[in-house]
Simulated scan of single mutants.
Amino acid sequence: MGKKTVVVGLSGGVDSSVAAYLLKEQGYDVIGVTMQIWQEEDSCTVEENGGCCGLSAVEDARRVAQKLDIPYYVMNFRKEFQEQVIDYFTREYLEGRTPNPCIACNRYVKWESLLKRSLEIGADYIATGHYARVEQLPNGRYAIRNSVTAKKDQTYALYNLTQEQLARTLMPVGAYTKEEIRKIAEEAGLPVAHKKDSQEICFVPDNDYAGFIKNSTGKTIPKGNFVQADGKVLGEHQGIIHYTIGQRKGLNLSMGHPVFVTKIRPDTNEVVIGENEDLFINTLLCDRVNFMAIEGLEGEVRLKAKIRYNHPGAECVISPAEDGKVRVTFDQPQRAITPGQAVVFYQGEYVAGGGIIL
């Protein structure tokens, strides 16, 4: 058996750079790859934000590869990114849901497409700089395990990976805290040791989702009515793509007290407005379910679930529903359960699975 070969997705950031360094130290043959995903290189304005798609990301990744003395390539995944991430993102917003494009990117671009191409060039594994761990459980299944640092844990965005993908995935950064990663980068002399993290969605650097959707689709987004749950009209909204469940700011409604978006009705182009207490519910349905630590669902199972990336997680019971859907019933009502977002189930420190909230 010779040395195993791993393709590391280098974003030009400190986490993926240290992942490549750690794997080389562990004796792997490491190949660095930057995924070219943005549609127009010259319009990629996220460079100063530490984004992962522009020319400066490529330059930073190349400098890291030179420092580590590993081969480095840029692979073009623009088509996959457009179809699987951008088109999905705009479609979901136009249908009144709030998508998580990072989850789609992880499953269909960073894993499905990169893994396929990596295997074609003879690699055994792919690796990323995610704060998570991959482990094989006693039941033989692979699962994502929480990183050692809850502050940076990225398991929520990885729930959708398949068993085949996990079997060929390495995530060395999950065993460290962010501070330790920066220290390793500094000691290894990596040029990105102090590069700041990117925060926003990489293809919407100014956080103006509605503007991005209008520009990329060329569609005129019709205005409609703000209504109460009983249908009483309160005012005019700017188009459903501007709103999400739980939103308070930017409504421009003078109600005399804070009010919130409680529901979006794409069929009638209405945005429902209510009180904070209206946002708390204790049950949801999800579909497009991917099981990870567990093989499937025979009956009720008690787990914890997160309904958004920064949700702390809450005790619940999940049970099978019609057409492969899963019903989630929380012990305590949860605030602002949002259609289009992922609900991710945890069994202790392991991702049991997840799905998309209906």
Rank of each mutant, 00 (worst) to 15 (best):
Q341K: 08
P99A: 02
S118G: 10
N310C: 08
K196F: 11
Y350E: 06
G218N: 00
L137I: 10
C44D: 12
R78F: 12
F280D: 01
K249M: 14
S11E: 06
I126Y: 06
I70F: 12
I184L: 14
H130Q: 13
S198T: 13
E59R: 14
G27C: 04
Y88S: 02
P191A: 07
A188Q: 05
A352H: 01
G348E: 11
R97V: 03
P191R: 11
R107F: 09
K183C: 02
I103W: 03
E80N: 06
N160I: 15
S319W: 07
R117Y: 06
T217Y: 09
E298L: 10
D287V: 08
T268I: 12
F81C: 04
G51D: 05
N269P: 03
A150Q: 05
V6N: 09
T338E: 10
E270P: 05
D87M: 09
L137T: 06
F260S: 02
V326W: 02
E200D: 13
I103R: 04
H311V: 14
G299S: 12
Y73M: 13
Y159M: 04
P71Y: 15
G239E: 11
S254L: 08
K232T: 15
Y93I: 01
H311D: 13
V74Y: 09
R327H: 09
I201D: 04
G313V: 15
V18H: 12
F89S: 03
I103M: 03
K67I: 05
T155F: 05
K110Y: 10
D331W: 14
T155Y: 06
T149K: 06
Y176W: 14
K151Y: 11
E25F: 05
N106D: 08
Y21H: 10
F280E: 05
